[in-house]
Design a protein around this nucleic acid. Structure first.
Length: 496
RNA sequence: GGGUCGGUAGCUCAAUCGGUAGAGCAGUGGCCUUUUAAGCCAUUGGUUCCGGGUUCGAGUCCCGGCCGGCCUACCA
C-alpha cells in the first residue's frame, strides 16, 4: 500500500469508517495540526517515573503530592465524562484519572480523541481509587507524540515469533515478561562488570576485525577492508588478544563483548553472541573455579535476589554452597557403564556408542567419539552446577597439561542447566608446547595459526588462569528463557 | 543443510466432507463521573503469504517458492 504523501489534507468528503486504523490516526493528526498543535514537537517534563510516583502515596495519606509523568498509553477506558488510562514508561505503569469537570470541556473533547499507543504527559495529584490503586488525578495533560500504528492486542500481547523478533519494540511495549527479561539481562551484565572491577580487573577492548581469528575452532565471518585491500575476519573469541595483554603486564584483564561465529542457528546458538573472558596472572584453573562460582553466585544474588532458580521443567537449580566437581573420565565411565572405556579400541567404542544410540561418524578420532558421549548423553543431565575437570588434552590446545597425567589438561568446564556455560584453563604459556598443539589442530580443524600470538608468548606470559563465559547462556537460565533469541534484543534473522 | 508443523482482519484465534470466510480485542458512531481484559447498543474492516495446477466450485487438495516454530546437523 502506498500513501499519497503529497496530499497533506485529509479527504473530508469520504468519512473514515474506521477500517483503516492508520488512516484514522493520520486524519486525527491532520486535524490537530489544523487546530494549531504539532503532535511531534512538544516535550513534557517528567518529575517522576511511574513507580517513583506511586511510591509517594503512602498508606497513611489520602492525597499525595503533585507529580508529572510521561509515557505511552497502554490502556484507555473512556466512561462518559471521566476516563482512566494506563501510562507505560521506563520502569512501569501508572494509572491516571481524567475528568471533564477538572480539565475543561474543550480539553476533554480532544483528550477523547487520543489513541492507544500515543505518548502523553500528565500532571496531577496522587490519590487512591476505590479498589486501592494509586492514581494520578489529571490537572493537565498533553499529547507528546502521536502513534500512527495500532498496538497489538491488549490481552494476549504479541505471540507471533517472527514479529516479536523483527519488531522487538512491539514485544517490549506489550509483553511485560519480555521487557522484564531484558532489564534483567542488563542488570546481569552490570553486575558482571561490578564483580571484576571490585577484584581489580582492568576492563579492556580488543579488536573485532582480525586478520587471523583464533582462540576457538569456529568458522569466522569474512569481510574485506578496502583501504588496506585485504581480508579481515570477525573475531570468534577474545582469548588471544587478552593473553597478549598478560604479556604486556596487565595482570588482570577482562572483556565483555560480541563474538561472531559463522555456524548454524539453533535454540542455543546465535551467530553473534556475547562472551565474557577474564584472565588473571599468578593463579590457575583452581583459582578460576573460585572466581567463576563467586561471580555467578554474586550476579544471581544481586540481580535476582536468590540462589534457588526454579526451572520450567519444575525442578530447582541450587547455586548455593560449594559446587560439585567431577572428572571427565569418571562421568564417561559412569555413563557408558564400563571401567575400561578408555582402553577400548576404536571399533569397540563405536560399537558401544551405537548401543547407547549415539550417532557417531566412524571417521572420528578416539577422543572425538568419547566427547560425543559427553555431549550427547552427559551434558544435558548436568543441571546442578558442576565443574567437569581433567578433560582430554586434545580438546583444548590452549591449556596446560596436568602434571601427573599427560593425557589431560588443567581445565574445567562448568555446566549448569544442562548446558556448557563456562570453560576455564590453567593457560598454556610455553611457546613451543603451544605451537605444537596449534599445529596438530591446523589443517584438520578450523583454527588458524596465529604466529603473532606465538611471538608474544615467546616474550613470556606469566602463569595465569583464564575463563570464558557465554553471557547469553547465563541469561537463559537466570531468566528461564526457552530460547537464546529471547535473551538477545535483535537476534539474527533471515532478511526479507 | 535435512525432517516436521505452520502462515486467515491491525492483534489473538475459528472455519465440519472441497460448498456464501467468522469471533474477541482494537477501530468507527452513540450511552456511561472510581474503571481494572470496564460495561451496553450499533457498525466498518479480508489479495486467506506468493505463483501455478486439479475442480462446476479451493482458506481447505496437488506442485513450486517465500517466511517462521520445533526437532536435527555443523558450532572442541
Amino acid at each position: 500500500m502506498s500513501e499519497d504523501k503529497s496530499n497533506s489534507t485529509p479527504q473530508q468528503d469520504t468519512p473514515l469508517d474506521g477500517s483503516d486504523q492508520f488512516a484514522v490516526r493520520q486524519a486525527k493528526l491532520e486535524q490537530m495540526r489544523e487546530n494549531g498543535f504539532d503532535p511531534f514537537r512538544s516535550n513534557w517534563e517528567q518529575s517522576h517515573t511511574s513507580t517513583e510516583a506511586q511510591s509517594l502515596l503512602t498508606e497513611d495519606m489520602e492525597e499525595g503530592p503533585e507529580v508529572s509523568v510521561a509515557g505511552r498509553i497502554v490502556a484507555f477506558r473512556l466512561m462518559g465524562k471521566a476516563s482512566f488510562l494506563k501510562v507505560l514508561d521506563r520502569d512501569g505503569k501508572v494509572q491516571a484519572y481524567v475528568r471533564k469537570d477538572e480539565i475543561g470541556e474543550e480539553e476533554y473533547a480532544t483528550f477523547k480523541k487520543l489513541d492507544l499507543g500515543d505518548f502523553i504527559g500528565i500532571r496531577g495529584k496522587l490519590f487512591r481509587t476505590k479498589t486501592g490503586e494509586v492514581t494520578i488525578r489529571a490537572q493537565e495533560y498533553r499529547l507528546v507524540t502521536k502513534a500512527l500504528r495500532p498496538l497489538p492486542e491488549k490481552w494476549h500481547g504479541l505471540t507471533d515469533n517472527d514479529q516479536i523478533y523483527r519488531q522487538r519494540y512491539l514485544d517490549l511495549i506489550v509483553n511485560d515478561q519480555s521487557r522484564e527479561r531484558f532489564r534483567t539481562r542488563s542488570q546481569i551484565i552490570r553486575e558482571i562488570r561490578e564483580f571484576f572491577w571490585n577484584r581489580d580487573f582492568l576492563e579492556v577492548e580488543t579488536p573485532m576485525l582480525q586478520s587471523v581469528s583464533g582462540g576457538a575452532a569456529a568458522r569466522p565471518f569474512r569481510t574485506h577492508f578496502n583501504a588496506l585491500d585485504c581480508d579481515f575476519n570477525m573475531r570468534i573469541a577474545l582469548e588471544l588478544h587478552l593473553k597478549r595483554l598478560l604479556v604486556g603486564g596487565f595482570d588482570r584483564v577482562f572483556e565483555v563483548g560480541r563474538v561472531f561465529r559463522n555456524e548454524g542457528l539453533s535454540r542455543r546458538h546465535n551467530p553473534e553472541f556475547t562472551m565474557l573472558e577474564a584472565y588473571q596472572a599468578y593463579t590457575d584453573y583452581r583459582g578460576m573455579m573460585e572466581l567463576t562460582q563467586s561471580l555467578i553466585q554474586q550476579v544471581a544474588e544481586r540481580s535476582l535476589g536468590t540462589l534457588q532458580l526454579e526451572r520450567n521443567e519444575g525442578d530447582v537449580i541450587d547455586l548455593s554452597g560449594k559446587w560439585r566437581e567431577a572428572k571427565y573420565k569418571d562421568l564417561i565411565i559412569d555413563a557408558v557403564g564400563r571401567d575400561d572405556w578408555f582402553e577400548l579400541p576404536k571399533s569397540a567404542k563405536l560399537e558401544k556408542a551405537k548401543e547407547l544410540r549415539i550417532e557417531v561418524d566412524p571417521e572420528l578420532e578416539d577422543f572425538e567419539i568419547t566427547n560425543d558421549v559427553f555431549e550427547k548423553i552427559i551434558e544435558h543431565t548436568l543441571v546442578q552446577p558442576t565443574f567437569v575437570t581433567h578433560i582430554p588434552r586434545e580438546l583444548c590446545p590452549l591449556a596446560k597439561i596436568t602434571e601427573d597425567d599427560s593425557s589431560t589438561i588443567d581445565v574445567f568446564e562448568l555446566c549448569i542447566n544442562g548446558q556448557e556455560i563456562a570453560p576455564a584453563y590453567s593457560e598454556q604459556n610455553d611457546p613451543a608446547v603451544q605451537r605444537d598443539a596449534f599445529m596438530k589442530q591446523v589443517g584438520e580443524e578450523t583454527q588458524e595459526l596465529d604466529d603473532d600470538f606465538l611471538l608474544a608468548l615467546e616474550h613470556g606470559m606469566p602463569p595465569a588462569g583464564g575463563m570464558g563465559l557465554g553471557v547469553d547462556r547465563l541469561v537463559i537460565f537466570l531468566t528461564k528463557a526457552a530460547n537464546i533469541r529471547d535473551t538477545i534484543l535483535f537476534p539474527t534473522l533471515r532478511p526479507f
